[in-house]
Amino acid sequence: MTKLLIENISKSFGENQVLDQLSLRVKEAEFVSILGPSGSGKSTLFQLIGGLYSPDSGAISLDGKRINGKTGSISYTPQSPSLLPWRTVLGNILLGGEIVGETDHALALQMIDKAGLKGYENAYPYELSGGMKQRVAFIRSLLSPQSLICLDEPFSALDEFTRLEMQNWLLSVWEEDKRAIMLVTHNIEEALYLSDRIIVLSEKPTHVKKEFVVPFPRPRQASILLSEEFLNWKKKIYNELRVIM
């Protein structure tokens, strides 16, 4: 079943055409990564899905309903954790639900516990490390009522160790939750390790260049990161990206 359907959307800001006839689809319970060179309009794509702007042409639909220019349909986690500094961890996590008017205290506390943040419920964001903040932002996303989660380079600001740890944690949470996730990244390894499908974008004006279906079985084991097959896939996608860049 199709969750998100994007059909031939184009978007220009003044003279600058960012998206050109871009089409893609995300299925129910699917983890899709969007790979593309920097400045390829990935963030613009999210802002269109999120309804901050309307596309100049084309249609975006979620669960068969048109959501062009309509905010509040996706659960979005921006590049930086974007936590409200005056809210505690718990308060930040409840924010997504609060905006639509439904909060689940017990579930929030349970998720905090599962994320290894027990004891930090009442801590303010300034008291947390980078990885912890990111985790809070994820839980906020997961607890938001929307059925599609969009992650905009969520791991880019983390160091290598924290990143791998966070990826594993995200995978383990997602295996249980099985919501549709769209992840924007410029890290090939990350895309391969996490997703079911990888969509490679072209340079500006952006359209979909190529699609790969990732064959690795779930649940993913960290050991595949060093397997021959993984490296071959990495090479293949790298070559695809190199042509663009």
Binding site: L52, T71, G72, I74, Y76, P78, S82, L84, L95, S144
Partner: peptide, 23 residues
């Protein structure tokens, strides 16, 4: 960044004011 987040999450003008701009 925060106001982008709030808008995308579907916050109304009033919510953005009381939950974000005022604090």
């Amino acid at each position: 960044e925060l106001s982008h987040y709030m808008k995308m999450a579907g916050a109304s003008k009033g919510q953005i004011f009381w939950k974000l701009e005022w604090p």
